[in-house]
Computed example of a mutant assay.
Amino acid sequence: MTPYARRGVHGQTVEALARRILGGEIPEGATLDLVALQSELDVSLTALRESLKVLAAKGMVDARQKRGTFVRARADWNLLDADVLRWQFEGGGAGETDRALLRNLAEVRAIIEPAAVRLAAERRTDDDLAALGAALAAMGEHDTDPGHAVEADLAFHRALLAATHNELLERMEMVIESGLAHRDRLVHSSPHGEDPVPAHRAVLDAVRDRDPRAAEAAMHALLEQAGRDLDRVDGPDDTKGTGGK
């Protein structure tokens, strides 16, 4: 998905507003001063209103007669939206908020991916194995380049969800990918992480062998290793959980 910031003035306005809301600069319940924002962001009122429609669709703002446009409560935000997740990880929230979101996503992944890999082991095709193998090979080739390592890791987990041949599980990549990319950038930029290739290879081997139980166990081991890596980078936390990988 192309970040809104790369979609011209409209996209940049969407991201600027979203980051202010997510960062608390514009707090929940606040009524927006559209004239001031228009001047501050140097955009037309039409462009500003179109940008607010995007945020309204994501549950972040709303407009009412006599009240105007206001920021909705966080409980109303579509936190599973890929853009909302990305905005938070790319600077929308404070450190503790970022940490808590990583924990939440790690818990979601710990529920989804071990179950998904069981299906992948039962349903995978030769094309699925080729995609997983290519991602694993790229992971090994680019383990010294954080950017390439992140892309290879994302490709592996994307291929794993695709191998379930369940359309709804495949769509979960939009939720998982933002948190995984953020965690990967932290871990792969640090010299303290464990080599990710063996853990991913164990998952692929079990999927290739059509062994659901072994695949699930391998995924649990991978996620546990990922949690250790994140703790080394970020320091241990009171709430233990896997950090994604």
Results as ranks from 00 to 15, higher is better:
residue 88 Q to S: 13
residue 123 R to C: 09
residue 200 H to N: 12
residue 119 L to W: 05
residue 24 G to W: 02
residue 240 K to E: 12
residue 64 R to K: 10
residue 134 A to T: 15
residue 215 A to P: 11
residue 75 A to Y: 11
residue 99 R to K: 12
residue 117 V to P: 09
residue 185 R to M: 14
residue 147 G to L: 14
residue 95 G to A: 14
residue 2 T to E: 13
residue 35 V to L: 14
residue 108 V to N: 05
residue 77 W to P: 00
residue 39 S to E: 13
residue 100 A to M: 15
residue 143 D to A: 06
residue 12 Q to H: 10
residue 108 V to M: 01
residue 62 D to M: 01
residue 163 A to I: 08
residue 90 E to T: 15
residue 140 G to Y: 03
residue 149 A to P: 07
residue 150 V to D: 14
residue 62 D to C: 01
residue 145 D to P: 00
residue 226 A to L: 03
residue 160 L to E: 04
residue 180 L to E: 11
residue 216 E to C: 04
residue 208 R to C: 08
residue 83 D to N: 13
residue 135 A to H: 08
residue 161 L to N: 02
residue 238 D to G: 15
residue 182 H to F: 03
residue 57 A to P: 02
residue 145 D to L: 12
residue 70 F to W: 14
residue 144 T to G: 08
residue 70 F to Y: 15
residue 98 D to C: 07
residue 21 I to G: 11
residue 114 P to F: 02
residue 245 K to H: 13
residue 58 K to L: 10
residue 190 S to H: 05
residue 94 A to T: 09
residue 191 P to S: 06
residue 208 R to W: 05
residue 205 D to L: 00
residue 217 A to Y: 09
residue 107 E to Y: 12
residue 233 V to E: 07
residue 56 A to E: 15
residue 30 A to M: 05
residue 164 T to Q: 04
residue 223 L to G: 15
residue 77 W to S: 06
residue 54 V to E: 14
residue 96 E to V: 15
residue 62 D to G: 05
residue 199 A to K: 00
residue 126 D to A: 13
residue 125 T to K: 01
residue 10 H to P: 04
residue 238 D to E: 02
residue 229 D to G: 00
residue 17 L to S: 03
residue 92 G to L: 04
residue 77 W to N: 01
residue 83 D to K: 11
residue 238 D to L: 15
residue 39 S to D: 15
residue 236 P to N: 07
residue 231 D to Y: 00
residue 41 L to S: 02
residue 3 P to D: 05
residue 217 A to R: 09
residue 91 G to I: 10
residue 182 H to S: 02
residue 83 D to A: 08
residue 111 I to F: 06
residue 146 P to E: 01
residue 225 Q to S: 08
residue 193 G to F: 13
residue 234 D to P: 04
residue 220 H to N: 11
residue 14 V to L: 03
residue 29 G to M: 10
residue 183 R to Y: 05
residue 66 K to C: 01
residue 239 T to Q: 07
residue 165 H to I: 07
residue 60 M to S: 12
residue 107 E to A: 14
residue 95 G to I: 09
residue 111 I to H: 05
residue 192 H to G: 06
residue 158 R to A: 00
residue 221 A to R: 14
residue 145 D to M: 04
residue 119 L to N: 00
residue 64 R to P: 08
residue 23 G to F: 06
residue 207 V to Y: 01
residue 51 S to L: 03
residue 218 A to I: 05
residue 183 R to M: 02
residue 83 D to C: 06
residue 197 V to H: 11
residue 99 R to W: 02
residue 174 M to C: 07
residue 17 L to C: 07
residue 172 M to E: 06
residue 224 E to A: 02
residue 96 E to Y: 12
residue 90 E to F: 04
residue 20 R to Q: 10
residue 15 E to C: 08
residue 81 D to V: 08
residue 58 K to G: 01
residue 150 V to R: 15
residue 140 G to W: 14
residue 46 T to N: 07
residue 190 S to R: 02
residue 6 R to V: 04
residue 220 H to V: 15
residue 65 Q to K: 14
residue 245 K to G: 06
residue 36 A to H: 02
residue 21 I to Y: 11
residue 25 E to S: 06
residue 14 V to F: 11
residue 121 A to P: 00
residue 91 G to H: 08
residue 44 S to T: 12
residue 176 I to D: 04
residue 223 L to Q: 13
residue 96 E to H: 10
residue 142 H to C: 07
residue 153 D to Y: 07
residue 155 A to Q: 03
